[in-house]
């Protein structure tokens, strides 16, 4: 609330925005063919302006590598990171638990189950929308079952919500294993997709995830102050004029929608939604209106960096979900231990 914290927020926002842009350009240059930043900027500009003259001194394969191979993947990774961090902010704000994220509620498992079903049945009814649609349906059904399980006397208990999420998540994981067992020849596709990957990203995935993330940001920002007040508990927030039950449902639906789209496009990628909001809360405080934009950008930077490491640095491409879990897991344990100490981020 003080001037000092506002200035800190502005500086951090600008720094993160610049870092996001630089990270996108730098990682576009990295890979089997190394491309300079100047060439990347020229290729991007020429495709926006439709002016081939900019490309006169550039190798003819480079525009293809930049525009059709690398950028879709890079932007998808950035947007998925932003989406997962956004979902994390919402779930943590509503559950009043800094350790909550799409996984604690079973939403990711629900989305993954829906998407696995679509993959197994090879449903191509709606082209590129089949898997996201099935994932969203899985996420929403899971959300309603979990909420139903944890509602007593018309009120949702935050603690039982997590417990129900864990139980339903476990059942769905078993369901996914069963689908894998049934999948036979297709099992490799499901397994690889479940571990998380950006390899098959296209401009379509960029558009779909981009749309979902922007929609999610707008809705959440609209209810940002309500979400702040809701951290006081539902009795207090009701008494302070917040339509707590309604806002909670809207925001849970929003977070589940964004999660479902991310899971559908790239598989299960863990820990981004957990670590990023936690770290950012440490930097800008708990106000969700500040937390949202910085978490989205930081989530994007983190996931893009991880994907670039696995794509261009490591000798073998490790599935991104495995990489984030390997880095994020121990990190999470450290935060979990530090949480015992008092602090603003608790």
């Amino acid at each position: 609330m003080s001037l000092n914290s506002s200035r800190k927020f502005v500086i951090l926002t600008i720094a993160l925005a610049l870092t996001t842009i630089s990270a996108i350009i730098v990682s576009t240059g990295m890979g089997y063919i190394s491309i300079s930043a100047g060439e990347i900027v020229k290729v991007i500009l020429s495709s926006f302006n439709n002016s081939p003259s900019l490309l006169s001194d550039i190798d003819s394969t480079i525009p293809y590598v930049v525009m059709d191979v690398r950028l879709p993947r890079i932007l998808t990774a950035t947007l998925v990171g932003a989406g997962l961090a956004l979902s994390g902010v919402i779930y943590q704000g509503i559950l009043l638990n800094p350790l909550a994220d799409p996984y604690t509620l079973g939403i990711s498992s629900g989305a993954a189950f829906g998407a696995s079903l679509a993959l197994l049945a090879n449903i191509t009814l709606l082209n590129q929308f089949s898997i996201p649609l099935f994932a969203f349906a899985g996420a929403i059904i899971t959300l309603f079952v979990v909420i139903h399980l944890s509602t007593f006397n018309g009120q949702i208990s935050a603690n039982t919500l997590i417990l129900s999420g864990v139980i339903i998540g476990a059942i769905l994981s078993a369901g996914i294993s069963f689908l894998k067992y049934l999948a036979d020849e297709q099992v490799a596709i499901i397994i690889f997709w479940l571990m998380g990957s950006f390899i098959s990203s296209t401009w379509d995935s960029v558009m779909i995830i981009g749309g979902a993330v922007i929609l999610g940001l707008v809705i959440t920002f609209y209810y940002g102050r309500d979400l702040n007040i809701m951290s006081l508990g539902s009795r207090s927030s009701d008494a302070l004029g917040v339509e707590t039950a309604k806002v909670r449902i809207i925001l849970l639906l929003t977070a589940s929608f964004v999660t479902a789209i991310c899971v559908a496009m790239t598989g299960i990628i863990g820990f981004i939604g957990l670590i990023i909001p936690h770290l950012m809360r440490f930097l800008v405080g708990p106000d969700n209106r500040k937390l949202l934009p910085v978490s989205a950008m930081a989530g994007g930077i983190l996931l893009l960096s991880a994907d670039t490491v696995t794509r261009a640095v490591l000798p073998v491409e490790v599935p991104i979900g495995v990489l984030t879990a390997l880095i994020g897991g121990p990190f999470f344990c450290v935060i979990f231990r530090k949480r015992q100490k008092r602090g603003r981020h608790d």
Partner: peptide, 8 residues
């Protein structure tokens, strides 16, 4: 009950 939320 006085839940004061994340460290405000």
């Amino acid at each position: 009950e006085f839940n004061t939320g994340f460290g405000y």
